[in-house]
Design a protein around this nucleic acid. Structure first.
Lengths: 117, 117
DNA sequence: TACACTATATACAAAATGTATATAGTGAGG
DNA sequence: CCTCACTATATACATTTTGTATATAGTGTA
């Protein structure tokens, strides 16, 4: 009964980015923020608080899990990894990402079409 | 002093789509909703009320203007057209649309990279 | 013991969104 | 004429999302 209509707001996009990163490699919040840069997300555009908020949401839904590990220096880190449920969910969400890409392609094409006249 | 950091939420994306459509051809709200379909927006996903809300915002900012015209049948229609200011603004927003496309490309690429292993 | 740094987390006001409903003109059926 | 369906534009309001600030806490160092 969840997600009758998929959304792609800031929060959802961030969640997909995080899951894609965690699919590749288990990691913790602070480092994940840096790895989000290729997806147009950085500490300028995203407050670190919002990142942890997203991570907890994903964990509450069972898509990721975490373990505390000691750090060489500084406080403990909470290392997240993608669950099997998360992999399945990510796969679903990626089809929606493809649709969004197509929408952007269509938009760009339509805009540039006008310039050729 | 406006838009120190451009955003791309639902509202902004809709505004860009509307301006792209109006760049091509002046039109009215109800018809615009149908023409939004290639951009992944339809009457299922977008309430018609939100569409008029966006049109009025664009008009308040001077990016589009409107004239009332009589209809063959039914009530009057408010026909919108893109202003010169709107054209300039749209051009700016399109660079951001290109960035977003690149972000999606990177995300898809990163996701599929993992599948090849 | 004070400060800077890394890391995680929460609180709350502001903005965006979803949903329902209002207003209003036209034409068709009874 | 009266009511209903249809097209078209518009607004009100509760909920959700987002932005911003701040809290908590461990470690190293001066």
């Amino acid at each position: 009964m969840k997600d009758p209509r998929p959304k792609l707001n800031r929060e959802h996009f961030l969640q997909v980015c995080l899951m894609v990163l965690l699919k590749e490699k288990s990691n913790y919040g602070y480092q994940l923020l840096e790895d989000l840069e290729p997806f147009g997300i950085d500490s300028e555009s995203l407050n670190i608080g919002a990142l942890y908020r997203s991570l907890r949401k994903l964990e509450n839904e069972g898509y990721i899990e975490s373990d505390w590990i000691d750090s060489d220096q500084g406080p403990q880190k909470r290392i997240y990894h993608l669950t099997d449920l998360g992999k399945t969910n990510l796969n679903d969400r990626m089809t929606f990402i493809h649709h969004r890409r197509q929408s952007l392609e269509n938009l760009i094409h339509q805009y540039e079409k006008g310039d050729l006249k």
